[in-house]
Design a protein around this nucleic acid. Sequence first.
DNA 1: ATAATTTATTTAGAATTCAAGATAATTTAA
DNA 2: TTAAATTATCTTGAATTCTAAATAAATTAT
Lengths: 147, 147
Amino acid sequence: MSSEQVNQSLKLFIVLSRAYRAVNENVNKLIQTYGLNPTEFAVMELLYHKGDQPLQQIGGKILLASGSITYVVDKLEQKGLLKRVACPKDRRVTYAQITEKGKSFIEDVFPDHAKQINMLMSELSEDEKESVITILKKLGLSQSNFE
Amino acid sequence: MSSEQVNQSLKLFIVLSRAYRAVNENVNKLIQTYGLNPTEFAVMELLYHKGDQPLQQIGGKILLASGSITYVVDKLEQKGLLKRVACPKDRRVTYAQITEKGKSFIEDVFPDHAKQINMLMSELSEDEKESVITILKKLGLSQSNFE
DNA sequence: ATAATTTATTTAGAATTCAAGATAATTTAA
DNA sequence: TTAAATTATCTTGAATTCTAAATAAATTAT
């Protein structure tokens, strides 16, 4: 393993971090204008696009500890954007389910949200996007080899 | 702007987020073994590689609010890894400066740290790394156009 | 030179997250 | 069947981050 190779990997890590944080900071500012924080918005997107979710699963999908899920779901429930629904088959399990108000919220906000994200990516050509998607997907998936 | 283009951008955002978070989670586990948290480690790396920094600048470079810088620098100062040095030319400014202990710490830890990060990137070829670096650099730099 | 504005750091308090343990339900194994 | 182990959620307390305001110094404009 050459030291040049190591340097290239370090550089990749730095560039990946900077790009993600820079994009994410812009996306987070967007989300704030909807009156939610990024975690809350992630939960709403998940429920809207993937349907009801056991609380447990939410943690896995948006990378959040179990205690934090309770907190976020409490807040969204207070805002009327989702409700807890007991699982009839397994009484340990609680589903988070989007409400009508929650559905309207996402439907109001999401089309413009997507366009704004497209704007943030507008410096890249379609081919560049395609190739980054392919390579980063590979990189992301490989990370479970190192747990 | 076609809806296919928007979908591609959304996909890029998701893949970028997942890849970053997955890699970062592995890197953070590494850093924990050194007895620092990721923010503290980032400050130490910055001081080691880029020399003394006005507190203000640290915030810009590792994306941290001014109040948080005070907190992190306090902790590193308590651990003896850096010290505050007054700027003689501008008495508003305080520099963070790495101590001998801090220098030894980084020198002990960094070579292996870099190798481990290289390992985390080992699923990608040199060419793939090169092309992601180029494209993500462009993406990252373009984000200031949207502030 | 003085007042107003800007810049750097710190303080204070709130929000968010995590880790560890508590509780409750289910499953497994003796 | 009962005990032990596992799984899901919630509670608690600590750690980390943010925002906004306070303080202090420097700069700009009158």
